[in-house]
Design a protein around this nucleic acid. Sequence first.
RNA 1: GGUCCCGUGGUGAAGUUGGAGUUCACGCCGGCCUGUCAAGCCGGAGGUCGCGGGUUCGAGUCCCGUCGGGACCGCCA
Length: 575
Amino acid sequence: MRTHQCGELRPEHIGQRATLTGWVASRREHGEKLAFVDLRDHTGVTQCVVDNAVDVRPEYVLRITGVVAERPAESRNDRLATGGIELQDCVVEILNVAEPPPFPVSERADQVAENTRLQHRYIDIRRERMQRNLRLRASVNSAIRSAMESQGFVEVETPMLVPSTPEGAREFIVPSRQQPGSFYALPQSPQLFKQLLMVAGIDRYYQLARCLRDEDLRADRQYEFMQLDAEMSFVDQNDVHRAIGAAVLAAAAAAGQPEAAIETMTWHDAMNRFGVDKPDLRFGMELVDLTEVFGATEFKAFAGAATIKGINATGKADEMGRNKLDGLTDKAKKIGAKGLVWLKVAADGSLESPVAKFLSDTEQGALKSALSAAPGDLLLIVADEWSMTCEVLGTLRNDLGRPPVHEGPYRYLWVVDFPMFIGVDEVTGRPKPGHHPFTQPHPDDVEMLETDPLKVRSQAYDLVLNGWELGSGSIRIHQPELQARVFRLLGISDEEAQKRFGFFLNPFKYGAPPHGGFGLGIDRLVAIFAGEENIREVIAFPKTQSGMDPMTNAPTPVAQKQLDDLGIRVLPPKA
RNA sequence: GGUCCCGUGGUGAAGUUGGAGUUCACGCCGGCCUGUCAAGCCGGAGGUCGCGGGUUCGAGUCCCGUCGGGACCGCCA
């Protein structure tokens, strides 16, 4: 139907006959003897000159044949890649008419309510931004596939209808017609299957796997999302990092991103220095320990505190008025801190703060020195337990300093040595697993499992990019005895473990190799590469925050007959 | 489950102290126009101010509820 695409023609084609197909991006009529039609496809736009009246409207689908001609010097368009040429003596064939679109098919629609864009997603995707994002996503997927395969990974598909394992994220469940009253679950991840593939001798497995979790949606979370899911046998965690890192960096290269290295940091360092387990290393504002500075203080809020830390919001003193500072304090308290101390560094270097009078000159001097304070800076200090102090300041640091997603550089980070357990369940008194219960403890800490479980590090790790958690993984437990110990610690009896995970645990009796793996969130990775704050911008047909699709109206009620077949009765809505 | 923000012709916005569905830009329809490129000029049409209730002589505006959208907390082993 066509000889070229709309973004393809250049001065080198001058003199050739060309046939283009596409949509009318705009039409400019000058009486009955001259009209310009900008024809658009996913590759770009070409100006077509028509020497007669032509009744076309925006988004009409056309086939235009003409001769490629150089544009007169004064009418070149440098904003178009094809702006040096135009198609002349055009014959226009209308392949289809179109109603006016509900919003313009251009960058102007960036301002349109997202719901309207989603309702007419097929029009939204015609836009350059969405075309770019979806094609970027395809390139990333493709690069990841070849990177994995060149490292010996085998793509194996795993089922979408799986047994329910109620631990972890809430599952979507699917009723069984042949076994009324029984249900499948949609997989939160192929976790159990991929480990069984290691028992099965696949050695290196990967899959671009769709995962489903029935948890509330966010800018970086959808019910269904795509994961590079991988698992490797006979490896330690550095082997996994190398393999996944190679795939991520190959994806970055395919996305046209500059080369970058992947750093490594322990979980403890991440919390201690940045107050979060997914630090954004693009900016400083690190947490500085001030416990020593205020070791002998008479200021009651600080005296006797386990950990005192501060951050320097450089140059923020002027823009942070009383209202905003109160907002920060509220936020700190909401997280659980007793309070937040703020101090502004005045032009003469003195500290302005409601609490300055409680701090001795020595303390003020040491504080300024520790935080490298200069006039115009805003200093924020929290005194509390170590974890609370870190968490509060980490949150404020992100709020005050985090650059928008499209700003470089790219700072990839492995966060390692996560604690095996995060706190103690208030009800059961049992330690709560930080990752999943199949995670191998750090070999140096296995002895402390029963005696001091909260001190045990695990061989779990996250990959972080610019403050986004791209994914996580671990070296798994492959010895049944150690697995039993961990289950007992979590309060899961052998019998219960057998009941819930029997299909998964029993195979490990038949010669399970040491293994470990990773799951990498493709949507987030592509969003960052695309410079998008929101993963919906890199998903063709995403759901809204309440889990609905404005285009298809899913979810919808179903016919009573369908429910009858499944043995399901729907309760009336709660009053 | 919770906190905050938003909802006004097809689209995006403005709408002051409660005083006539008012305004602006784009789009749409008609006309004019031979070098435009988000063409230009002239004219025109287009509204359940998300929905329901309340206060009031009078509500886009104030109050309550509800629906929808977004950001976040909880949640996401």
